[in-house]
Simulated scan of single mutants.
Amino acid sequence: MGFTIGGIRDIREMRSGARRRSTECTAVAEYTGLWGWDVAPGVTAGGRVGGAGTDTAAEIPAGSTLAEVARAWSHAPGAAVLLPVGRTFDIIDVAQPAGSRALVRLERMGLPLGPVMATATGRAHFFVAPGACAELPELLYRMGWDDANLDLVAHGRGSFVTAPPTPGVRWLRPPCLDTAAEPPQARLVLGTLAYICHRSTEA
């Protein structure tokens, strides 16, 4: 019994799909088991922040093993990998060009940094300690940036961010054991981010 071209193509697509699922499960298990993050399957990708398209009832809790993740993810093949915001971390969201420049400067300054992610929509997400979203107006006021035109916002509890290996999303600074579960306070990175964003609007 021979294979048709279409049959070979179907087999390749099945294998490709299996590899994608394996990559997703491994990444999700790393998020839950190593970094201590909850994960939710999403019906849409793209790095969008918000609750739309998420199945909170299907959330995979922090501490789940690879086997537990594989069982859960088998019910959501091809789903975007979503991380709930406001539990272990909040997000400071800036345009990716400004975020990349700020990241270089922050690393040169030797400041503590959490993970930083590039989204499919051209944004950079800086992971900071929970509470940053509520504190942002006061922090910007204290730093003298409250009346500046900044392309900078914070996201907190109730929001979700799309994470790798969802297509179009990648790490600019991957998670590490030192800061994944306890990212830095927003005040440590906010001044540099605000300055770079301000310079970007003037250019």
Rank of each mutant, 00 (worst) to 15 (best):
F89K: 01
A76R: 09
D146E: 14
R142L: 13
Y141A: 15
P115Y: 02
R71F: 10
G2P: 12
W145M: 14
L103I: 01
T192E: 15
W37D: 07
P174T: 10
L103R: 01
D93N: 12
R123H: 15
A148F: 11
E30F: 06
E13T: 13
A98P: 01
G158M: 04
L136A: 14
P167A: 02
A79W: 02
V189R: 04
G99I: 03
V39P: 09
V69R: 10
T44N: 08
P130I: 04
G42M: 06
L150D: 07
L177E: 12
S22W: 10
G78D: 11
G110F: 05
A57Q: 06
L113W: 01
A120I: 00
G17N: 14
T26F: 05
L82T: 08
P97L: 08
A79N: 04
L34A: 13
L152P: 01
G47T: 01
V161A: 09
R12F: 12
G99N: 02
P41R: 03
R87S: 05
A203K: 07
W145F: 15
L190C: 12
G53M: 08
V128T: 04
D93C: 00
A95E: 04
R101P: 01
R71K: 12
L177Y: 07
P130R: 02
R199N: 09
A76Q: 05
A163H: 05
C25L: 05
G110T: 07
R21D: 13
P167E: 03
A79P: 04
Q185C: 09
S74G: 13
E68W: 01
T119C: 10
T166V: 09
E135T: 13
L106F: 02
L172M: 14
P167Y: 00
V94D: 01
R101T: 06
I11K: 09
A57F: 09
A148S: 14
F126I: 04
E138S: 15
G7P: 09
G17T: 06
